[in-house]
Amino acid sequence: MLQYAKNLLFDPIQALGRYSQLLFKAFGAVPEFNTYRKNLWEQMIHVGIDSMPIVMLAAAFSGAVTTVQTSYQLVSPLIPKSIIGSIVVPSMVLELGAVVTGFILAGRVGARIAAELGTMRVTEQIDALEAMGLNSIGYLIVPRVLAGIVMFPVLYVAACFVGIGGGMLVGHFGGFVPMGVFVDGAREFFQPFDPIFGLIKCLVFGFIITSVSCFKGYYTRGGAEGVGKATTEAAVASCVLLLFADLILAATLL
């Protein structure tokens, strides 16, 4: 019982310590650009461009659904239709664009990174890299985290573009709100800081998802089962931390 309580308290703190140690080493390895240059492009493709279709699909649907639901909820004749645009666009820009992309990336990229690094760990590929005299953290983790930080905002832009577009099209052709009215409403309440805030959120999310997944994968233990566990943990931890980060950012920056 005591042991259990001790584990409950100390394990997360210990994990946090190891996580920050890993990040510290990774930051130290950032200047060794030649080590990870080639990997960086590869990871940018994996994290960014390969995730593009699913992110866009999810974003288009969330934009469309937000439009339909908002118009469904606005029954008062006193409220102008343009309010739909005023609600859908900030929703997309502030929250949905980043969070939908975040969840997809947590599942898709986070799990992939954890599985990849976990397998490399249990089959001693990471040891092999180290034994050759290579900085395995620089070689494996830095390009993945950098790719996350760079490509997540790119995916966010795509998500917002497609999401707002989807909302507009469904609103227009579904007969909820004409496109021009939608745009007028969006413009009336548009805050230039909103997309900046979205971008900041994305940088943070991209960093969290990739770094947490790298951490889980890099320290995998226990063969195939360990890899499975690391993969699940990476996806779950990414999602949970993402939600916390979302709240903290909203509370501090908005």
Binding site: T123, E124, A128
Partner: peptide, 9 residues
Amino acid sequence: VLFQGGALF
């Protein structure tokens, strides 16, 4: 170093 399972990338 030759690792147990080869550890090929």
